[in-house]
Design a protein around this nucleic acid. Structure first.
Lengths: 252, 252
DNA sequence: CGCATCATTGATAAGGCTCAATTTAGGTGG
DNA sequence: CCACCTAAATTGAGCCTTATCAATGATGCG
């Protein structure tokens, strides 16, 4: 991180303001995790000029299903939740995005999902039009976005197996391990995870009810696999969780 | 179709063999449904030269999870099934592909899913290496493949809602309507659909057991919404199915 | 400090699963 | 061409996981 900053100011002095990294990018802790990481400094500046940083309060919408899909987002701080709403108000939470995750390029004319902040969120918001134009000149960026879109499909399909074929305990274990992995990657500890979403959000993600989520967490707690804390959990026995994540339960 | 053939032979005579549409493409009923539809004749020839038509018997594998992802496929005849296998032999069927559907470009170094023929299948098989090279010169094709990849993600997410939040009857109704739509698009009647997959395959797709699939079909049959035939079904009341596809069931 | 939302826990019910038996269909060889 | 054999589909009975309904306790915000 400090190497980047050093490199950055050096470049700034050498080449003048034109190729400076924008103020907001300079201190952006999400940059090494984000798609912008593949860009040169001049490119980064052009990208930054195209978008703007925005802040969202918890439970504020970034995107509403059905509305014109004018913007794409790069999450630079906090956690957001993607979801579908069914006609009769049932809900399916499609996933949670963290710092460094990108969102909204693949959309059609209108968003086909809603996105809501779970914590105070910061995100770079880009007009999709402008972004598309930039992409033509930045094949590296396009490639990176493509790779991430492909990862999204893989993740969605993995979640299909979870929803179609896994038990409540398996589902919870998988979610906890997944969040631990991803939160570790964006900088936190690997055993202490934050769970800013409600039990209802978790339930709608895992295809369960909030009560079952609560009870399953209680089971994991009784097994001393986890310790539930305020707004989070500590993974005490990740190996046990990993085995629970793949075993329907032994009836022997 | 006859216009295409006429146009084709004319082009062939005018410009010589170099720009001829390959033998197999000339009569290919999948072409208007496939990604190749966006190509000019010379491009079509180059694409065809890169791949080869292959036939698969029912239950033969096109792709096995874990093996090197050397090929991509365009289905030109029949139906295939995509699935994951979980460690303990549970299975999640991710989807069914028909004539005109494309498969396998987004893969990493190794396939992350298996693909099996459900009927006698014909497919154009392309080395992914060569295809990648071609794509650099055919932005139209790349764009088309991208659009289809994006559709896949949308479809996968829709299926998440199905698996996470829908009842057995809703799931069956959605599957039947979806297959009817897609089979109509590839040429069949819209009310008579083919179901070459087993009840187990359907169950593994919908997150149910074969018994529940059977019983749910019986319910739809008793409602006279469908008529179950050998290896297929007739949709007698698509409107009823559509309403069943979005209603959890009335407890009144 | 009080209210509303969220989380937990309990009791009961139900949707779908498991196990099991029967029927149907498809493929093979006599 | 038919009988046989096996796999698939259907149907039934009972059970289990998870949902539903309800009450209580915890949290946090105004």
């Amino acid at each position: 991180m400090s190497t980047i900053t050093a490199e950055l100011s050096k470049t700034g002095q050498a080449l003048g303001r034109e190729t400076d990294v924008p103020q907001s990018c300079e201190t952006c802790t999400a940059r090494p995790l984000s798609v912008c990481n593949v860009l040169s400094y001049p490119q980064l500046r052009r990208l930054a000029d195209c978008g703007a940083v925005r802040a969202y309060a918890p439970r504020e919408d970034l995107v509403r299903e059905g509305e014109p899909a004018d913007f794409a987002f790069n999450i630079t701080e906090g956690m957001v939740m993607l979801f579908h709403r069914l006609p009769d108000n049932r809900r399916q939470v499609l996933g949670f995005l963290l710092k460094g995750d990108f969102l909204g390029l693949a959309a059609g004319a209108n968003y086909d999902l809603s996105v809501q902040a779970l914590t105070p969120v910061k995100a770079c918001r880009f007009p999709r039009q402008g972004l598309r134009r930039l992409l033509l000149k930045m094949p590296k960026l396009e490639e990176e976005l493509l790779a991430r879109a492909s990862d999204e499909l893989v993740a969605a399909r993995a979640h299909l197996s979870l929803l179609g074929r896994k038990t409540a305990i398996e589902r919870l274990s998988i979610l906890l391990l997944d969040l631990a992995d991803r939160q570790a990657r964006v900088g936190g500890s690997c055993s202490e995870i934050e769970l800013p979403m409600t039990r209802i959000d978790i339930a709608d993600h895992l295809g369960l009810t909030p009560e079952t989520v609560s009870r399953s967490l209680a089971v994991l707690r009784r097994l001393k696999a986890i310790q539930v804390t305020a707004g989070g959990a500590k993974l005490l026995k990740p190996d046990l969780l990993r085995s629970l994540a793949e075993a329907p339960e032994h009836h022997s």
